[in-house]
Simulated assay, not measured.
Amino acid sequence: MRNKAIALLTIVCLSASALFAQSTIGAEVTTLEHDTQQGTYNSLVQVDSDTYLLAYQGLDGDGFIKTFTISADGATVTQVQSLTHDNINGTYNSLVQVDSDTYLLAYTGQDNDGYLKTFTVAADGSTITQVASLEHETANGTYHSLVKVDSDTYVLAYAGTSNDGYIKTFTVPADGSTITQVAVLAHDYDGIYNSLVQVDTDTYVLAYSDAYSDGWLKTFTIPADGSTITQVATYEYDTQQSTFGSLVKIDSDTYAVTWYGYNSAATLATNSWGSYVKTFTIPADGSTITAVAV
């Protein structure tokens, strides 16, 4: 019998303080097993007050898009619609909303190439229609992290040829009819486990792992039209091991990165693998990255 990664949607009630405090997180409300064969590389966004859109890799490695309705209290989760948008591969998904009924997906398709696709999705989730597709990377395109810059500009961090770290910008109109690459920057020899966050209107911060699995933060300046990408500041936050990193914005100049890594302590008895969190301050212009707490 082959191994299966079962696809589940689980609703949990969280308190704000529990997100960064090591305490009881909250109570699980309900769970829906929406795919009994496979469910990996998930990316989930909100469509409206009770409708959600999920991109994931399902049976036979295919790329799927599904809609669900979730009640305000989280008591019910109902699958509404499903679309198999790639029957070869659908990994490293990163999904963002373009406008009220249009969505942009970055993912890894056939031959591990990098793709962008747009979809129109009805507010109630009843229909999912693929609109446009762009193969933006023909050598390798993995570890995607996609962020919206303004109404028609998007920035993507990903691992390209030989896992080199890249930043690209694209323009996509509100109806998703076209996807156009604008600018590209190769910022590191390796750039995996990408997590990209917007700092302000033209500044972005990226958490990623390099060729030695060290953990890095970098800031970039990108104008609203995406015409240029300029690296500003760098900070190595882990010199041992950093994998599966995730970066979040806490307030206007404070950020937290969490990752799975290795604590190289003074004695072998206290050496350990585990999950870590560090906080940083970054000004609006991205000129400095300062560690606060770990």
Rank of each mutant, 00 (worst) to 15 (best):
V205D: 07
Y212H: 14
G245T: 05
Y189C: 07
Y193L: 02
T219W: 09
A265W: 06
K218Q: 08
T234E: 11
G245N: 14
T239L: 04
T239P: 04
Y260C: 02
A266E: 15
L217C: 08
F220N: 02
T201R: 15
G215C: 02
W216E: 06
G226Q: 12
N263A: 14
L206E: 09
T258N: 10
T228E: 08
Y193D: 11
I229E: 03
Y260V: 00
G245E: 09
N194H: 11
F244R: 12
A224W: 09
T267I: 06
A266R: 14
S213V: 12
T243S: 13
L196H: 05
S242R: 00
T239F: 04
A265S: 12
D238G: 01
T258Y: 01
S246H: 02
G191L: 11
Y212W: 12
I192D: 06
Y255F: 11
Y255D: 08
G226Y: 06
Q240M: 11
D238E: 08
T258L: 02
V248C: 04
D202W: 08
L206C: 08
Y260G: 01
L206N: 07
G245F: 00
A266H: 13
K218C: 05
Q231K: 01
T201H: 15
L185Q: 11
T243G: 08
T228A: 12
Y189R: 14
D210Y: 04
L185H: 10
S264N: 15
I192N: 07
G226M: 08
Y204Q: 10
A224L: 10
T243Y: 11
T234Q: 12
V232M: 04
T234N: 08
A266L: 14
G226I: 06
E236G: 02
T201Q: 15
V197H: 08
I222K: 12
Q231F: 00
Y235F: 14
Q241R: 13
T230E: 10
E236Y: 02
T219P: 09
T234P: 01
A186P: 03
V257S: 01
W216A: 06
S213C: 12
A186W: 03
D188E: 10
Y255W: 09
D225V: 07
Y235A: 07
G215Q: 06
L217E: 06
V248P: 03
T230Y: 06
S227G: 13
S213A: 13
W216R: 11
V248N: 05
Q198M: 03
D200F: 01
Q231I: 00
D225F: 06
Y189L: 15
A256L: 06
S252N: 13
V232W: 04
G215D: 04
A265D: 14
D190S: 15
I192G: 07
W216D: 05
S242K: 00
D225R: 09
G261N: 02
T254N: 12
A211E: 13
T228Y: 00
G245M: 09
Q241N: 14
Q231S: 01
